[in-house]
Amino acid sequence: MFAALSLSGGLAVLFTRNVIYAAFFLLLTLLGVAGLFVLASADFLAIAQLMIYVGGVLVLVIFGVMLTNKTDPAADASNQQPNRIASQNRSTGWVISALVAGSLFVALFTLLARANFALLNQPVGWQSTVNTIGRQLMTEYVLPFEIVGILLLAALVGATYLASPLAKSFRNAAR
């Protein structure tokens, strides 16, 4: 059921013509992926998915959509809908990308249907992963943990600077 939820959300992102609708269908997809994480006995990752993606990234995306959808009165008549996703104007682009993505999916599907992973036949137990993840973060993965913390800090500070309207005036003043 969660698989159907996320796949239909993804297909709706593919086929919708409006950026706002695409953002909300992306919300559907991310919720479905969180449900799949729970079914794969990854409870901590499911909560992290809900908090990071649904709570953070998606709100950011919706802010981006809302900040970039102002109508331009000087635009031509084909540009009336502000949130339109221009994709239908080139049938060749449509055919090529559908061919690439569809053939990739068919290849992966036949590969996965024929493959017989010895790992997947083992029994799997259900237990909470929070304890293990915490222990691993503080022992084996402590260096990547710190590096990713620094990376996140630098990226967020840089994004704040880039998005601020002061950035351009600072640049002009420094020139």
Binding site: S87, I96, S97
Partner: peptide, 22 residues
């Protein structure tokens, strides 16, 4: 695999920057 293919199709097909990010 299906989600990856859908994402690849979205990146290749759409002409809006935010949808490419999606």
């Amino acid at each position: 695999a299906a989600l990856f293919s859908i994402g690849l199709a979205v990146v290749l097909l759409k002409r809006h920057a935010i949808v490419v990010l999606m």
